[in-house]
């Protein structure tokens, strides 16, 4: 087996190279990505997140939303992400440059959220959905997040302006109201900021889509 050492030499050298290939090189290639400014509209994409939305991203991480929801739209013709209305184009590396922790996700127990801010911009819907998903989405297996809210007696001044409007089985006891905590407000601000449909040179939005 005199050729053995030569064979092993080749294999050993290639061992270290995967790390160069899969870690070092992408770091060099993608590390310099910046925001893109649209020549026509001067819109900047992706836009940096406002304070509440940035806090909300941290709550998204801490609550582990990533274990059921993805934040990546697959290309046209691959899966049915675009047909489901989850985005107007696929997501690309540039879409994630502002994310402190990139949470692409690997399970779609729930729908993709890359563009939930465009698909569902109504804050009230999000509050009701987080409080108990059965309210807005009967049959959902998403757990209730009542701990993000405060159920309290309605004060002398009457119902709070930000109290959730809940009817029927999930309504709070008489004389009580459900109010979002600061954490809920920040999380919803984050969700409403999730938009990845800006026109980019590497991922243009098709004209028919842009017109919608």
């Amino acid at each position: 087996m005199s050729y053995g050492p030569l064979l092993f030499l080749g294999i050993l050298l290639t061992l270290a190279s995967s790390w160069v290939g899969l870690v070092l090189m992408p770091h060099r290639q993608l590390g310099a990505l910046g925001q893109h400014t649209d020549a026509d509209t001067a819109a900047v994409h992706p836009s940096a997140r406002a304070g509440d939305a940035q806090q909300g991203a941290d709550h998204y991480r801490s609550l582990g939303c990533v274990y059921c929801h993805t934040q990546q739209v697959r290309p046209e013709g691959y899966g049915s992400d675009l047909e489901r209305g989850w985005g107007r184009r696929r997501t690309v590396s540039r879409d994630y440059i502002h994310d402190k922790t990139v949470m692409l996700g690997t399970m779609r127990t729930g729908p993709d959220l890359s563009n939930i801010g465009e698909r569902q911009s109504d804050a009230a819907w999000h509050y009701r959905h987080l409080y108990n998903p059965q309210i807005t989405s009967p049959g959902s297996i998403m757990p209730p997040h009542a701990f993000l809210f405060e159920t309290r007696a309605i004060g002398a001044a009457g119902r709070s302006t930000n109290a959730l409007v809940i009817e029927g089985a999930f309504a709070p006891p008489a004389g009580h109201e459900v109010v979002p905590t600061r954490r809920a407000e920040q999380l919803v601000a984050y969700l409403r900021s999730l938009k990845s449909s800006g026109d980019l040179p590497e991922a243009p939005v098709k004209k028919e889509e842009a017109a919608k």
Binding site: S18, W19, L22, V23, P26, H27, L30, G31, L33, S93, R94, Y96, I97, D99, K100, T101, V102, L104
Partner: peptide
């Protein structure tokens, strides 16, 4: 390596996903 590149001095953007799954 993973601790350094993801927790201590996190890399930027989707490189995180690359390091994570590597």
């Amino acid at each position: 390596t993973a601790q350094v590149m993801l927790l201590i001095e996190p890399v930027r953007g989707v490189v995180q996903a690359a390091v994570n799954w590597w």
